[in-house]
């Protein structure tokens, strides 16, 4: 163990040289690289922070817009619901009106149809009754019935109102003689009685003409010009048919 002063001095110089070498070739470049990397990392961190802040801002903005959209959506939905309710009420009202009109129209059509059916039934019933009465009266028709109808004619003529007699008298004046039509040949007695009764009610007239017409079935018809006083079964059936037509 001895101290060599030359070595001591040279080692000091060597260490200082090594200090310069390491500082020049190791510490400075490595520290510069580390500083550069640190700066890069800091830059990246700053960018990341900026991006994070931007993202947070965008998130806040998006949430705000989302909240606005939710409010607008709720308002639009409420408005749409109100419009829908209003439209539904309007449509229901229109539908109710249309339904009532349709119901009325249907009721009117039903009533019309029922009336038509009723009339058809009445007409059919009248037709059936007329046919039945025609058949029945045709079967009952005969000289006896006609005699009774002649008697009935005389009686009715005696009590016929003046209002109905006036046209007959006018017809008599216009056309001269009257025509008495019967379904069967009248006896002389019946003719005289008829002439007497007609004279009594219509006054003096020309000679009466007596003719037979089987279409009358039974009874007599007095024709004075255009005016007739019918007391026959055919005339009654015609009145009946006319009444049936009027009833329709």
């Amino acid at each position: 163990m001895e101290l060599n002063w030359t070595t001591f001095a040279l080692e000091i110089i060597n260490f200082l040289a090594l200090l310069w070498i390491l500082k020049r070739f190791l510490y400075r470049p490595v520290l510069a690289t580390l500083a550069e990397r640190r700066a890069g990392i800091e830059h990246s961190l700053n960018e990341a922070r900026a991006a994070q802040a931007n993202a947070a801002s965008l998130k806040t903005q998006f949430e705000s817009r989302l909240a606005d959209w939710e409010q607008e959506k709720a308002a639009a939905r409420a408005r749409f619901d109100a419009e829908l309710a209003s439209e539904r009420a309007r449509q229901m009202e229109v539908l109710s009106r249309d339904l009532a009109a349709e119901r009325e129209r249907s009721a009117a059509q039903d009533a019309h149809r029922q009336e038509t059916v009723r009339r058809e039934l009445v007409a059919e019933a009248g037709s059936d009754a007329r046919a039945f009465a025609s058949v029945l009266l045709g079967n009952l028709a005969g000289p006896d019935l006609e005699a009774r109808l002649v008697e009935l004619f005389i009686d009715e003529l005696a009590v016929l109102p003046e209002a109905r007699l006036a046209p007959l008298r006018a017809g008599q004046n216009d056309h001269g003689h009257g025509v008495v039509t019967s379904a069967y040949p009248l006896a002389e007695v019946q003719r005289q009685r008829l002439s007497s009764a007609i004279d009594a009610r219509l006054g003096t007239h020309g000679p009466l003409e007596f003719v037979e017409d089987g279409k009358l079935l039974a009874g007599v018809r007095l024709s004075l010009g255009a005016w007739q006083l019918d007391f026959s079964l055919a005339g009654e059936l015609g009145v009946f048919a006319e009444a049936s037509n009027l009833a329709r």
């Binding site: 070595t7 040279l10 080692e11 060597n14 090594l18 070498i21 190791l26 490595v30 690289t33």
Partner: peptide, 26 residues
């Protein structure tokens, strides 16, 4: 001792020069 130290200086110098020629931050 001095010669060995010079050798170490050479080792450090050359080694550091070679190692730090192309440093990359990335």
């Amino acid at each position: 001792t001095v010669v060995t130290t010079w050798g170490l200086l050479l080792f450090f110098g050359v080694g550091c020069w070679l190692a730090t020629r192309r440093l990359s931050a990335d």
